[in-house]
């Protein structure tokens, strides 16, 4: 009657640990500006977690920190305090807390926040990163996959699609690839909002890669981060469908085998 370790907060803590190399690199190169943005998103999301703890008795989760980091890193810049606060509040409350907190949400709150800000304030410029931040996304994926908290299938499928497109030699793909990997680590591999069946995960990763390739080719004048966030958002809308399809297929195969 011993209990193991893979409860919700442990998974959130390990996810945080996996992201650390990338976050620290980003803070190092982003300086005070980055620290200010991160503090702001942390405070706003923290306040909402407090509100829901007091009003609805919902235990706050470390996962709030994860979304705050993702928003601070890839939300559009120069929004000003009010708009950023509005975006983070919308994402945290409507995409996560009203469903009962992390683990019961349907979409990733950070994805929703960033998409909300991106669509709401299209004039705001999207951030760009120095190359070491992009590189630091790789250890984040590796650590997550090693602990089994990020799905290896999603990562491999996304890399496979992106790799095939990259080997075609299109300059648009090589320009978007770093941002695609960054968003893969920050938003797409989220174990809750992503697909949860084996086949569903393959499809989910592949569809994310597919959307990135599509946008890189067809979307003129958009920033790489904007395109990849949109790809992540669309792919996560499809995730429940993939799961449902994978389950239906699994049940059918079993019925065929066992009658």
């Amino acid at each position: 009657m011993r209990r193991g370790m893979w409860d919700r907060e442990m998974v959130a803590a390990l996810l945080l640990l996996a992201l650390m190399p990338m976050v620290l690199t980003w803070l190092w190169f982003g300086g005070l500006d980055a620290i200010g943005r991160l503090s702001l998103t942390l405070i706003i999301s923290g306040v909402w977690h407090m509100v829901f703890m007091l009003a609805r008795a919902q235990s706050p989760s470390l996962a709030g920190v994860l979304s705050a980091i993702a928003v601070a890193m890839i939300a559009p810049e120069d929004l000003g305090l009010i708009r950023l606060a509005l975006g983070v509040s919308f994402g945290t409350v409507m995409a996560e807390l009203v469903f009962g907190g992390w683990g019961r949400n349907v979409l990733n709150p950070a994805t929703v926040t960033i998409a909300f800000l991106g669509f709401g304030f299209p004039a705001a410029p999207w951030p760009d990163f120095v190359a070491p931040v992009f590189w630091a996304a790789l250890p984040a994926l590796a650590i997550g996959a090693l602990f089994g908290i990020l799905s290896m299938r999603v990562i491999i499928a996304a890399f496979a699609v992106l790799g095939i497109a990259y080997s075609g030699g299109d300059p648009a793909i090589s320009a978007i690839l770093p941002a695609a990997v960054l968003v893969l680590a920050l938003l797409v591999t989220d174990p809750v909002a992503g697909a949860s069946t084996s086949l569903g995960r393959w499809l989910y990763g592949a569809v994310y890669g597919g959307f990135v390739v599509l946008f890189a080719h067809e979307w003129q004048g958009a920033a790489p981060v904007q395109m990849t966030v949109s790809a992540a958002f669309l792919a996560s809308l499809f995730a429940p469908l993939f799961d449902e399809a994978a389950l239906a297929l699994w049940v059918r195969q079993r019925r065929k085998r066992h009658g």
Binding site: W6, R8, A57, S59, R104, G148, I149, P191, V192, S196
Partner: peptide, 14 residues
């Protein structure tokens, strides 16, 4: 009083 934290699907669960 709170609802119990949900299970996060990880490799450990599979």
């Amino acid at each position: 009083v709170s609802r119990r934290a949900p299970i996060i699907p990880t490799a450990a669960l599979d």
